[in-house]
Nucleic acid binder design. Structure first.
Lengths: 350, 350
DNA sequence: CTGAAAGCGCTTACAG
DNA sequence: CTGAAAGCGCTTACAG
């Protein structure tokens, strides 16, 4: 490591000021959009010309050190390998990029300790704000950040106490569409592979499932609901296996998201069952590439990219005006009927 | 925007020094692993204790401004929505995180202008180095960065002049495995949907295809090769359609990557052809979730995560020692035979 | 081993 | 409208 060497910037503000024959303070004001109103037009021109000929580029580190703004924001997600997140992350990044911000990305793996270390690294680097998809319903990390006054926007998942701005999908509506669809097809007993109840998505979809079923006059046998520990294929397999192991299995399974649905697919296939011939399966999220699986999965589409875009928009708003009221935006989902569901009267043996 | 307000850090090095009864310079040395050897053990202890009770956290911006090291690196990719990249990005991030680095992520969309703006934003923020998956075979942006002395490591794609460190897959070997597989199955004429020739991946696979075919005694009709503009499903469709439009179509298509192969799938299906019944298709990359498509795609697996890991490792090495010789690592690929290829004698009408 | 001082490159009240 | 000065919070030759 080169030590003791602090190479100076090729050309600094002082060089520009000298070349333009003004004081560095004046050069600074001339170069800054917010203060250039304070300086005479001819002076501005002279400074700009000097800056251009010298190829001056401000040292952003010096500026940030002074102003405490870095024009960088952190994006924290569980795992970019989950296909749900790339489009959301793109949404956030694209909006940030538009405003000259840069994005730090990190994956928590839903590990609170890792999340804490990630938060620390970002806060220590003085990110201006944070966009988070990792919130648990009760999240001490998020609470701490809030108390520190770090601007935050949650996306996809939300916290239980509604004191943090967020952008998510209207899961209650989405689930109701699923239940109505299945019920209209004639399904009486619908099983549910529920997501983790420590997360708003898992919990909201589960409770919406119970209410929606009740609304259609169906009662949910508690044994027809199995709770996954994580939103993963492996957990989907475990839960689906439990459901299929019952003496009389439900004629349909609503999975808490597409990853869990993929797990259901594997188990159903391994059990030698046909889908939707023997059992119908529905997912949630309409994540990228899920439209390529076989049989085509009926699921609920949520606007991934827009969700990210909006989350960034909200954060940018708070950065401009910290006093902005707390918003919890919910985006409308849409049922996408594909091949994994069928009327029960078409079922083999039904 | 709160103006004119420069809130001071809660507790600074000066506070710690005061509490410990030492000079700030001494406190700095005591707190820094590289200089603590210069200070007396009791003093270190006193400083550490003071820092702990005060809850001191160094201002990383101030430190970076002084030392010109930010412990941050940029990851630049074409598009995180391409399933190939999430695992690679994870590999890079995980390795960086281990060493206390933070990652800035950006997507170029293969747009040189956007790439330039991204580079500028990162360089201006004084990232310590850059890991790039967006290189073209002749890339002025990459060349500029190199000349500026910014430590770079390329991954997935490489540049033609081998003067930039890189980690990629051994495409020549991978392609040879594909060709041998297909030839052993009895295929005489194999078409190729080639990737963009401006990128090393597209070009290397295309030329390896031609050589490997020759090695097996087959000659490639130039009309059996169609060049895609991008590695996308849409381009795969366009190229496959061109191939199928020929009076006598080849019995197999080797696609430059899995995205292109997916495009081939669509066209074949739309044409009412069966795969592998009527035509065999092979992809490249074995990208995540490609194992879920139907029919199962034969492809070449490259170690995505390890590739990212190694790229980060190489960069970290260069950060420690800028004089490190330039390495171009190639990782071994592996043929994954699934259902999209079949012996020609089993074909309908063959 | 430690102190005193300089300085990294900006921005911004404060005067004029 | 502009200059002069202070200062953001560190690190690091330079003395002692």
């Amino acid at each position: 490591m080169p030590k003791g060497v602090v190479p100076k910037d090729a050309v600094t503000l002082r060089d520009v000021a000298d070349a333009a024959g003004v004081h560095p303070g004046t050069a600074s004001r001339a170069l800054n959009d917010e203060t250039k109103a304070l300086v005479r037009p001819e002076t501005i021109e002279r400074v700009l010309a000097a800056a251009a000929t010298l190829g001056y580029k401000p040292n952003l580190l010096a500026r940030s050190f002074k102003t405490r703004r870095t024009n960088s924001v952190g994006i924290v997600i569980p795992d970019i390998n989950n296909p749900l997140f790339p489009p959301m992350v793109r949404g956030v990044e694209d909006r940030l990029f538009e405003d000259g911000y840069v994005a730090l990305l990190a994956n928590t793996e839903n590990d609170p300790d890792r999340q804490r270390r990630i938060f620390e690294g970002m806060v220590d680097r003085r990110i201006d704000g944070l966009v988070l998809a990792t919130a648990r319903r009760h999240d001490v990390g998020v609470a701490e950040l809030s108390e520190m006054g770090i601007p935050i926007v949650l996306f996809n998942r939300v916290v239980d106490d509604g004191r943090v701005p967020s952008v998510s999908s209207d899961d209650a509506t989405g689930v109701r569409m699923v239940v109505d669809h299945l019920r209209n097809l004639g399904h009486e007993r619908i099983g549910h592979v529920a997501g983790p109840q420590s997360m708003s998505t898992g919990h909201a979809r589960y409770s919406a499932f119970v209410s929606a079923m009740a609304e259609t006059g169906a009662v949910v046998d508690p044994r027809d609901v199995v709770f996954a520990e994580t939103f993963s294929i492996a957990e989907g397999e475990r839960c689906a296996a439990a459901l299929l192991a019952r003496a009389e299995r439900p004629s349909a399974i609503f999975a808490g998201n597409d990853m869990l649905a993929l797990g259901c697919y594997s188990v159903v296939e391994r059990a030698g069952l046909a889908c939707p011939g023997d059992i119908s399966i529905v997912g949630f999220n309409d994540m990228p590439f899920i439209d390529r699986v076989n049989p085509p999965l009926t699921t609920v589409r949520i606007p991934h990219y827009e969700l990210g875009l909006l989350a960034a928009e909200l954060l940018l708003g708070r950065l401009r005006n910290p006093e902005m009221p707390i918003e919890a935006v919910q985006l409308e989902p849409q049922l996408v009927v594909r091949g994994s569901t069928a009327p029960v009267h078409l079922r083999v043996g039904a």
